[in-house]
Design a protein around this nucleic acid. Sequence first.
RNA 1: GGAGGGGUGGCGGAGUCCGGUUGAACGCACCGGUCUUGAAAACCGGCAGGCCGCAAGGUCUCAUGGGUUCGAAUCCCAUCCCCUCCGCCA
Length: 424
Amino acid sequence: MLDLKLIRSDPELVREGLRRRGAQAESALDRLLELDRQRREILVEVEERRGLRNVVSEQIAQFKRDKMDATAKIEAMRDVGDEIKRLEAGLKEVEALLEEELLQVPNLADPTAPEGGEEDSVVLHQWGTPREFAFSPLDHLDLAAPHDLIDMERGARTSGSRFAYLKGDLVFLQFALVQFALQKLASKGFRPVVVPVLVRDEAMYGTGFFPTDMQQVYRVEADGLNLVGTSEVPLAALHMDEILDEAELPLRYVGYSSCFRREAGAAGKDTRGIFRVHQFDKVEMFSFCAPDRSAEEHDFMRSIEEEVLQDLGLPYRAVNIAAGDLGASAAKKYDLEAWLPTQQRYREVTSCSNCTDYQARRLKVRGKGEKGGAYLLHTLNGTVVALGRTMIAIMENYQTEEGLIAAPLVLRPFLPAGMNTLGR
RNA sequence: GGAGGGGUGGCGGAGUCCGGUUGAACGCACCGGUCUUGAAAACCGGCAGGCCGCAAGGUCUCAUGGGUUCGAAUCCCAUCCCCUCCGCCA
């Protein structure tokens, strides 16, 4: 959510910011300004009358204490009370419209986010060299098949398309990655958390997934809960409505959870294997930090993501996502894309976003120091390891001519003793 | 799921029966000061947040949303959450 005061005081700045996000975002601005004007107009009237009521109520109380007759005053206030009620109803209506409008406006893009849309993201750098294969490499499904590591058919039978059973050594690989990631992050000051994956609407609105991405979310209607698409949601909501001591900042967490996405609108896209599925597990980092430190925290997160891919020996490139392609909450986003030999291109495996105060404003997460005065924090989130996609990258990049998969060295301490290759 | 009890400031905890100078006693924590070589103790002072406003100031908030009333932390209704007991259960 954007700051209404900023919208009011510098509409042109906001207009330009929204233009960079895409035209439809910009059109809301004039409606916002008008609703805000209306709100303040009514507010002044309501407050005037409430002030009067407070003063007279006080007098009535005094009269009663003095055992004097207050009937005349009470009589006079009856109309004022009704009028307040009427005005309050109008105010509520305008505020509801304003809120609805405001919830849909995305965050302003950071000046350093590239101009443009999906095609205009900028490659910052790349690391590693795609491996030259002396044989023709198999994709993850073909590699999995002889060892029965991924069972799409039965996944579909049980749950539908885009669901899978992961089996055997792949399960060991997944948990080795989790353990590797958690230990690395813990050593960097991120507190491990296993989060609730069913959350209330508040958490979805608070993180900016509602209302914009509602169609991507599995909803458990009977209980009014939602399955999260990332542990970013429960991690962000962890400090909802709190005022944090600024001495504790940045407050860093690393969450582990299953993630659920409906993938609405992705029909026909990435239909092979587990690259794009409705359910996957992910290790995610999250940080609450002081507003003037978030840019630096963002780069720190990206460096961690890069370190993970480097440790795993996966060639990748880092991309600065263009303004028009950012999620609703993000002001700036980096993606890391790992090389997939069978697709002969880099595909997104991790991503980290600086949401500035956008989520904090919705969730009411603030900081406060010795000097007093609460202020909104900045929130950042980043993937440490998206298990499915990372395992695809490992399988493809580490395959042998015999159709086996070598285990990355850094993971071996976390695999069953002696398991140096996967798939037997 | 059934029966009770409860949600007040950073924390603890009054106030709710009997509605009115209570945005909220008191204590702890924290910040500033006096004293001290320094610290502790003692003493003095400060210490919620939102909204409107250039400001002065006003207004709102005692889980949330409605209602009653001239006036609600206090009364009524609904919702959410927490605790205890019973039942069920990984």
